[in-house]
Design a protein around this nucleic acid. Structure first.
Lengths: 357, 357
DNA sequence: TCACAAAATGAAAACGTTTGCATTTTTGTT
DNA sequence: AACAAAAATGCAAACGTTTTCATTTTGTGA
């Protein structure tokens, strides 16, 4: 593949601010000898125009290098063909798959994605939502259920289709597609309990403004409570979403005496850190300690040993979210079902083993 | 943080397709008792309007919940306030940091990001570029230099500012900001050579349509050639960008007899796979084998042992790309410098050791 | 070939801003 | 207080489409 010579370095060209040369629908119409209405229809509703006319127009458009201006169309019919996706962060593994799936599914519908990250800052989220609304997105997907009332107000007032992704709730005020994080946490802890572990450490990220983490933590605590297990404060560790930090905290945890027999991590990133910490301290997994995560990120399966975790179908969530949102935008109706749960699955790999008796 | 009750599930509301209620600049003008021109100026050039008038307008806008329509503005002055970023893939670690940085820097300029991934498919890239052009982006960042001529033609014809990101070239036909991948590869191989290794395996992704990988591979081969080392075919392994695949290939490599003393990986993902493979096979790093990567992804530092690799400043590239592109769009001039190189750095961590004599 | 229905096309009015130019108001100077 | 200059505001014409409604063309059956 050859690179195209775009711009002559010697001749210091100026990007024309006017884009004067760009042909519009009028030029195409003139060249094809039809009215602009017909040209417009050729691109927006092709089967309304007779084949011979259409090919003539298409040829003219091709020759002129015409590219339709969707902004102009959006102005008239209120549909920009652009959907918004707001995530806490892009550059961590959790959401990357979701984003990619969302974006590529949108492409199937000839829509594009405006994306922004707020870094768990709800004020920034408000600014982002506003900015997206200024671009007249046709719909918006937000991660989870914790949002600033003012964001929701803006969206509600403009009647913009909204969907909550990633987390599932049986009943919610906005439609959602996601996994049951409570169940995910209970399932993985159940697994650990079934293996006979009773002394376990819990590493979870900050649960403020993060319903996913909160649900998981609650799930873990419920399951343990049901089993009659109380978690002492020093076994409930707050850990940021960061491999390095997790590793540091777990090294402290496992190097001292009175090490737990299992570590339950709020997500796979923390679990990765935990695994590395054990390598570093010479603690064998799973013989000396069992480790579980939640999420099943890319790479978790290939760790040595493979990480026991809960598969969260990020791609599936992204795909469904995209098509649901497009449908909402097209039909103007809330989706059916309103709340959509995607299946989770326990991935029982090598990082867990029955406690020795 | 409390979730806001956005939509009453019992009352199956309809998203009004018309968005009839949404107030425009006219309603704001009426309520504030000024002309629409003044309202427009209040938002686009605030200091052209007297303070008392401005606050009056702002209050009116607030009360009505006015959100300006940038599409309408774009129609008039040809600036959408939206920049495009086209990457091969979103959901792999390489580009996530870049994307996040690009996006958040754009936010500082009150711009938004339209992003799309083409999965190394140049035809899809063409479609994406077209789609972005239809949305009248103010500029576009493309990864690397391998692009379809037709994409570049479209961009050139519309005079859209373009920048190539990630890879650096001393001389290029479009402005670029990136790292010197040849140098990166040479540096890391030099390090391995300096440690006395002569028998090394090379794992690189497919270099077609991927100038970054190509540059790295060339860098490695040049450096080896200069040292008089010829790489036998079975030591030059093609490996996809995938931990699992890398792990599988490396297990084969190190389990048999005649294992190399070092593995040079085209990127850190492959290196991760290589490390896990060695764990799985009981091959000790670095004592039995040295492993190096290129990229220094999130997590590479925390592997056990820490991965020796080359730091590629993805955030920095993203930031610079965003501000450069905005500047190009604002001034209409090519950037100065035209080609921008960001520094790389050898991260000498625990995965390498001098070969035993 | 004609009449008529159906399909294709055209004319023109939106859509919600921005901006050049004209007009009004404010400010500063005497 | 009067005047000129400067600043603020208003008017109205774009911007490039889509769409409604009217008109023309095409197709069909007798």
């Amino acid at each position: 593949m050859q690179t195209f010579s775009f711009c002559d370095k010697n001749h210091l060209m100026r990007y024309s601010k006017s884009r004067k040369g760009a042909p519009g629908i009028v030029e195409v119409a003139a060249r094809a000898g039809v009215s602009i209405a017909t040209v417009s229809r050729t691109f927006s509703q092709p089967d309304m125009v007779r084949a011979p006319t259409r090919v003539r127009i298409e040829r003219a458009a091709d020759e002129l290098g015409y590219i339709r201006n969707r902004a102009a169309g959006a102005l008239h019919n209120r549909f920009s063909g652009t959907l918004g996706l707001v995530v806490p962060t892009i550059d961590n593994a959790i959401f990357a798959e979701l984003i990619e799936a969302f974006s590529s599914r949108l492409r199937d519908f000839d829509r594009t994605m405006l994306i922004a990250a707020h870094g768990y800052d709800l004020d920034l989220e408000v600014a982002i939502v506003r900015s997206l609304l200024e671009r007249r997105i046709d719909g918006i997907a937000l991660v989870g259920f914790d949002h600033a009332p003012v964001s929701m107000n803006m969206l509600q007032q403009r009647d913009v289709p909204v969907i909550s992704v990633w987390n599932f709730r049986e009943v919610s005020n906005i439609p959602c597609v996601g996994a049951d994080n409570v169940a995910a946490a209970r399932t993985v802890v159940r697994h650990v309990l079934d293996l006979g572990h009773r002394d376990m450490a819990l590493l979870f990220p900050d649960v403020a403004s993060n319903d996913r983490a909160r649900d998981r933590m609650n799930g873990v605590l419920e399951e343990l409570h049901q089993e009659g297990i109380k978690v002492p404060p020093d076994r409930l560790i707050s850990c940021p979403y960061d491999i390095g930090e997790a590793k540091r905290l777990v090294r402290d945890l496992v190097s001292g005496s009175g090490r737990p027999t299992a570590i339950v991590c709020g997500n796979d990133i923390i679990a990765h850190g935990a695994v590395y910490a054990c390598y570093a301290e010479g603690v064998r997994i799973p013989d000396d300690i069992s480790i579980v995560g939640i999420g099943d990120f890319r790479g978790s399966a290939h760790l040595e040993p493979g990480l026991t975790t809960i598969r969260m179908p990020a791609r599936r969530i992204g795909n469904i979210a995209a098509s649901t949102l497009v449908e909402m935008s097209d039909t103007g109706m809330p989706p059916d079902p309103f709340n959509r749960k995607v299946e989770i699955e326990l991935k029982d790999r090598g990082s867990t083993i029955a406690v020795k008796v």
